[in-house]
Amino acid sequence: MRVHVAICGIGFGHASRSLAVVRYLLERGDEVAISSYGDGLDYLRSSGLEVNPVRGVDYGRAPGGGVSVRWTALRNVFLPLMVSQQVFQEMALMESWRPDVVLSDTRASAVLAAKALGLPVVTLLNQYRTVLGHRNHPRAASVANGLIDIVPRVWNLSDRVVIADYPPPYTISSRNLHMRRGEERRVEFVGPVLDRGPESYPDRERAKELMGFSPDEPLVCVLTTGPSAERRAFRERVYAALDGIKDLQVLFSLGEPGSSEVRVNGKWRIVPWLQDEHLALAAADVVVSRAGQTTVLKSIAFGCRMVLLPVPDHAEQLGNASSAESKGLAVVLDQRTLTPESFREGVMRALELDRRPFDAYAELTGRLGGLRRVVELVTYLGRRGAA
């Protein structure tokens, strides 16, 4: 079977979950062609894959790493033209490759290209409606959201829409998954898409030993994720507050793929990149990160309590963080007011969170089998299309 996989390149989240699907298909003997852009392109190439670069789209950011309505508008003033270029690029790749099925991870252009060529398409999402919010420019955000609302109409052209989130009432990105009447009929919640789940790793104490830490003390794992500007702001603010937990074991990933230098400072280990992020999650008692949906779901799947610092004015991340906190899974902090004292308080509160919600999610994760279900749908449509 020949599969074309088109992946959103904003940050690492889309690329990391789609990478699990790509690896499964390749190991099974299928042929796979990939397209992406931006951070996703770099991430996939650093994982050893050949990736076709395509025109990228993105939102604008303020100097502190938060979402900027103004810069989003300026950056995307020619958005219809940019999307058209993406569609034509994807069509050219598909026509030369002649896939049996297309998997689109949040790429509307790939859905349009596939439908124009009569190809079946599975769309993998974590938000059905992108919402742009801003406390200083609510009117501009409202106008932008009206334009963005066109995108779900493109998702609806897909043969199947798969949501990489837990089904209600366990859904994390519930604020971003509001659907109109009838849309939910084509949607399936499959949970986190992981190539290896917690059952593939040793218990937390043994995992700490494998990572070079003491099994008898808590381990705080700081994961730097997201686009480069957001990663930089996160690193600076968390590192400045790190003295608040100088008595705890810390594994700090800087989120820079391809680097290998490791710095050790007492109980802290600072690494550019985690070669096995899942082993780090298996070892971590607390994960400190942004509130991107992929990282949040991975942390939940591995039973990690969380301290979340959502990107300022990023409606999706603010919604994810609020949802995780309301379910007893996380403590939410504001990066703009972060101090060593508030950081320590947040980590200590997270360490005290009740384990019972995590146990419920662990059972649900195993039952849903997100990766298996995505592959089943891709295989079904691919073989039906090739018949």
Rank of each mutant, 00 (worst) to 15 (best):
S214A: 08
R235L: 06
T224F: 00
S253M: 09
R235P: 02
P257D: 01
R231P: 06
R231L: 11
P218K: 13
R232V: 08
G212N: 08
G255K: 08
L248H: 14
V250H: 10
S253R: 09
R204D: 07
Y239G: 08
V238Q: 05
E230Q: 15
S200I: 00
S228T: 14
A229M: 09
L251T: 10
F252D: 04
A241V: 05
S253C: 13
G255R: 09
K208L: 07
D243H: 02
R231W: 08
R204C: 08
A241C: 05
G244Y: 09
Q249E: 10
P202I: 09
V262A: 08
Y201R: 11
R231C: 10
L210K: 10
E209F: 01
P202S: 10
P227W: 04
L219I: 12
D243V: 00
L248T: 13
R232T: 12
L223D: 00
R206K: 12
A240N: 12
D203E: 15
G212M: 04
F213M: 04
V238L: 06
S259M: 11
L248Q: 13
E217H: 12
D243N: 08
L242F: 02
S214C: 05
Y239D: 11
P202E: 12
S228G: 03
Q249R: 07
C221V: 14
